[in-house]
């Protein structure tokens, strides 16, 4: 089990007649998603636009996205994994226990209807947000959702996509992969990339206090990370590159103001479907770009004697 069955957003626009949002509130968090990619546009094979599509919202509460949905399935908090597992069983016509299903806040009839609709879709898509991937079960929830979609392809065309956001997080992930071979949670402390989420991911490193300095680029961990991680950022030298004053810049030892990427600095942003878009600046800024600042820091670092392990030749396989 594993992997991801997905597509670019234009495929959804041109083909999707059945759209699920699970654990996310795009009406507030991705406000152009409905109008640009999923619900409203007239697609090549969905010429009717909104009328040609059915939207199901699965969430623990009725968010502002609910008024855009044809069907709302309100799950009890923390029961997403159970719902997905039930759906996977129903897809394969396996028996399920109606009493256990009731604990999820949904009825067997609702779920059977949901499965019938999924199987009868011409082109289905499941978008899932942090309400699924960051609540009880976490990555197990995501894995179950991805597996459900993969298995539906035995019956019809079905794809999935995580609703990523937070600036250019997809771009950071993409570039890390091609430069180090891994998407995140990479340690270079031995001079070559090692990947171990839970050990080398940022929050874990900060909470354990493993690092003695932090460079923050295009992020505001002071606003979102757990308190012990924030405490460590405040305790040790933290350098922030950001156009604005942020929670992190307030606790940082150094804040270098940089030009805003996309407004006064060029660059590339990767969309949530990993399609790269060029950014063209429209205004001039008195501030340097993030790239210039990092390059200048790197030049200074290079003036120091090189740190290299005893042998920098290829390390043989473990």
């Amino acid at each position: 089990m594993g992997g991801k069955v997905t597509c670019t957003l234009g495929e959804v626009k041109n083909r999707a007649d059945f759209i699920i949002y699970w654990g996310g509130n795009p009406a507030d968090c991705h406000p152009l998603h409905f109008s640009r990619y999923t619900l409203i546009p007239k697609g090549k094979h969905v010429p009717e636009g909104r009328k040609g599509r059915t939207m199901v919202l699965v969430d623990v509460r009725e968010t502002p996205s609910a008024k855009h949905a044809d069907i709302l399935l309100q799950v009890k908090p923390g029961k997403d994994f159970e719902v997905i597992t039930t759906l996977r069983a129903l897809v394969k016509n396996q028996p399920v226990d109606a009493a256990r299903v009731a604990e999820t806040g949904l009825t067997l009839e609702q779920l059977q209807d949901f499965v019938d609709r999924m199987k009868n879709a011409r082109f289905g898509v499941l978008f899932f947000g942090m309400g699924l991937s960051m609540t009880r079960g976490k990555h197990m929830n995501s894995a179950a959702a991805l597996a459900l979609v993969a298995e539906l392809n035995a019956y019809t065309k079905f794809v999935s996509m995580p609703m990523r956001g937070h600036g250019n997080v997809t771009g950071a992930d993409v570039v890390m992969r091609w430069t180090t071979g891994f998407p995140f949670g990479v340690s270079m402390s031995r001079g070559y990339p090692r990947f171990n989420p839970g050990e080398f991911s940022t929050i874990d490193v900060l909470v354990r206090g493993d690092n003695d300095a932090t460079l923050v680029l295009g992020a505001d961990p002071g606003a979102t990370m757990p308190q012990p991680a924030i405490d460590h950022l405040a305790r040790t030298p933290t350098i922030v590159l950001d156009p604005k004053v942020t929670h992190t810049s307030r606790l940082a030892r150094v804040h270098i103001t940089t030009a805003t990427t996309g407004i006064s600095a060029p660059g590339t942003v990767y969309r949530m479907d990993e399609i790269p878009l060029p950014l063209k600046p429209i205004l001039e800024s008195p501030y340097p770009t993030d790239e210039e600042v990092v390059h200048r820091i790197l030049e200074k670092v290079k003036e120091k004697p090189a740190w290299t392990p005893a042998s920098y030749k290829e390390v043989p396989c473990a």
């Binding site: 992969r177 091609w178 071979g181 891994f182 070559y192 990339p193 920098y312 030749k313 290829e314």
Partner: peptide, 30 residues
């Protein structure tokens, strides 16, 4: 690369040096 980090865990490693960038070999090298 994103899908198969396990293929890189035991792959050839390239350590950075004044001349070389770091990286990993394996089935889908960096």
């Amino acid at each position: 690369r994103a899908m198969t980090p396990e293929n890189h865990r035991n792959a050839a490693k390239f350590t950075h040096s004044p001349e070389l960038r770091a990286g990993v070999g394996g089935t889908t090298p960096s």
